[in-house]
Amino acid sequence: MLILLQNIFRFVVLVAIQVLALNNIQFLGYINPYIYILFIFSLPARLPRWLTLILAFILGLSIDIFSNTAGLHAFATVLIAFMREGTIKVFTSIEEGNNPEPSFYTFGVGSYIKYIVALVFVHHFTLFMLEAFSFEHLGMTLLKVLLNSAITILIILGIQSFKRK
């Protein structure tokens, strides 16, 4: 029950921060970090996959509605939600029967960083490629992917490092 409330709260706060603050960052004209995916990262590790997918779809669509990009964020977010379980399996070793909420403490610092870096990169890559919808400005799109991934990863790790055990 507590976990449910916690996640609803996290959903609302992350979407609000994303659309009201982060989407207005206009540094260099490229920088626009997307930290709302922290919601997907922080879902309990053994949450049924179908539920993760549906939550990801709702999350992505909410961001889409606020930023006039129907389907764009939904697509990228559903993709990382699908890849999440595999990524957790590859990078971490949680015991059978445990269902921790991913963080530095439960995953270990190294594993958690790998987990975040891999998924953020996939998400940003999909997002910016789809946004460009062509290979015409490939160089600039890749630059955007790298810069924004780096900033998103830093912010997410920053938030997580403040978290109590």
Partner: peptide
């Protein structure tokens, strides 16, 4: 299958969004 269905829905939305007209529902 669920994954594919959700991705197809999203992709359809993106493609439809390429055109000039779009539903008011999904915009600001």
């Amino acid at each position: 299958f669920l994954f594919l269905i959700l991705e197809i829905i999203s992709f359809t939305l993106i493609v439809n969004n390429q055109g000039y007209q779009r539903s008011i529902f999904l915009s600001t």
